[in-house]
Amino acid sequence: MLSIPMPTIIQPRDERTQPARIVAGYPQTPLRNPRQPLVKRSPTLSELSGPLEAARRVKLLGGDIAGHGDKQAIGQLIHLKVRVLDEDGAPVGGTLVEMWQANAAGRYLHPNDDDHAPPDPNFYGAARLVTDESGRCELRTVKPGAYPVPTRDGWWRPPHVHFSLFGKVWLSRLVTQMYFPGEPLNGQDRILNAVPDTAARESLVARYLPPTGDPHDALVFEHQIVLRGRAATPVQP
């Protein structure tokens, strides 16, 4: 008998677990977010399907972005162990994960970043990976630096890593950011703190793992990302 993959159900999220759209002190947000109420719809096949093979459309970039030898990036070497799950807690394997971050000085390799922090010629700062069957992927990188946001009142972004993920259906697409534990700037970051629910906010912070085995050449962090969607319960005959 053919195995027919379980369809995905998407339910509305608890809004308190998601960021406000308009954020005080983030001056672009009031100009760019809809004034009209968002239209409610019942998802159809079109939204409950989605690109499973986006990784075949983009160029994959390896997960070791810290470099080696005399090409090693400056900064604190870290291993980031990422796991991608759905709302049932089931691993989401084979999905494209795109990550990018500033260098250790807080500078992006991007033409629009005119911050004064120095670029690092050995750090491009982006990876594109596909999760394995257990929903895992791993990044070897350097810890990103904090950087000032060009607002008048001196807001600094804490160290963070950007994530873009696909999942199984169009409505599971996610763009998010991951933070580091114990960072003093976390408490005042306007983007992290736009999420009202405390537990949801804390789930955006990676967990530090104590060292195990050799070599102890990097700090290890793990981070879990939950994409929207769960398997539909099969109808009993």
Binding site: H110, N112, Y124, V175
Partner: peptide
């Protein structure tokens, strides 16, 4: 049931190669 991870802005500094030629 697990709570879906909170979204955040993509920001202005996604890598130039984020948009592949021909995508």
């Amino acid at each position: 049931m697990m709570i879906p991870t909170g979204e955040a802005t993509i920001g202005p500094f996604f890598p130039p190669r984020y948009v592949d030629q021909g995508a």
